[in-house]
Write a protein that binds this DNA or RNA. Structure first.
Lengths: 113, 113
DNA sequence: GCTATATTTAACCATATGGTTGAACATAGT
DNA sequence: ACTATGTTCAACCATATGGTTAAATATAGC
């Protein structure tokens, strides 16, 4: 429900390691330790990455004993998807409309007016 | 067409100024100069931002005389949207399935087993 | 050719990012 | 209580980012 800032969500998604962490989390919840295993970076680095994901609202960390269990929060993605969907559609329509207006089949490069 | 790296696309979208530039471009093509007007940042800064968007494949710059006309390239968004859609759906299904399995209505925090 | 305009490039600055290692903290297990 | 384990925090480093201003480049127009 919290409004997850597009800034943070997009930023979080822009790193391949973080996307891989999300991929892994998609297979089910996991502790930080297990999340770190497949990556060649240090434990602390993964912890930081998870921090970024957490701040973006994409994952939650729950203390379970001395471990921290991470889970995914799909809701945090809806804002980002909505933004993209809207613009993708809007732009495409716009460009189609322009092309229709000009009656343009692509390939008149350098039209100077 | 070109495979626009998710890294670059998400990164480009993570900045509010750049998203605003895209919004503005959605209203139609515009020169760098006109794009820079509404923003309080310097001309060069906007030029750089456009460079980022261009490298991500989100906009194209075409030289028209001494001006550069920027246009939007919606196709560059499809990869990002696909990623989000897939994961959003996948995760949601997963979590639903888990909840169904456990017959769990949320609210048993700190379950130690 | 000279000058004005549009844009990029270069040099620079402050801060953020992603990475490291090692210390600190919290809990499990003996 | 002690020790081992899981995780975070702190300090640090290199590089990237977003911003600036000033110089360089390219074209338009006289």
């Amino acid at each position: 429900m919290v409004e997850h800032s597009l800034d943070h969500v997009f930023r979080a998604l822009s790193d391949p390691t973080r996307r891989a962490i999300l991929d892994r989390l998609a297979e089910g919840e996991a502790t930080v330790g297990r999340l770190a295993e497949p990556f060649h970076v240090s434990f602390a680095a993964v912890s930081k990455h998870i921090g970024v994901l957490e701040r973006a609202g994409l994952v939650t960390r729950e203390a379970r004993g001395r471990e921290r269990v991470c889970r995914i929060n799909p809701a945090a993605l809806t804002g980002a998807r909505a933004w993209i969907e809207f613009h993708e559609r809007f732009w495409t329509n716009r460009l189609d409309a322009l092309d229709a207006l000009v009656g343009k089949t692509p390939g008149e490069p350098g039209r100077t007016r």
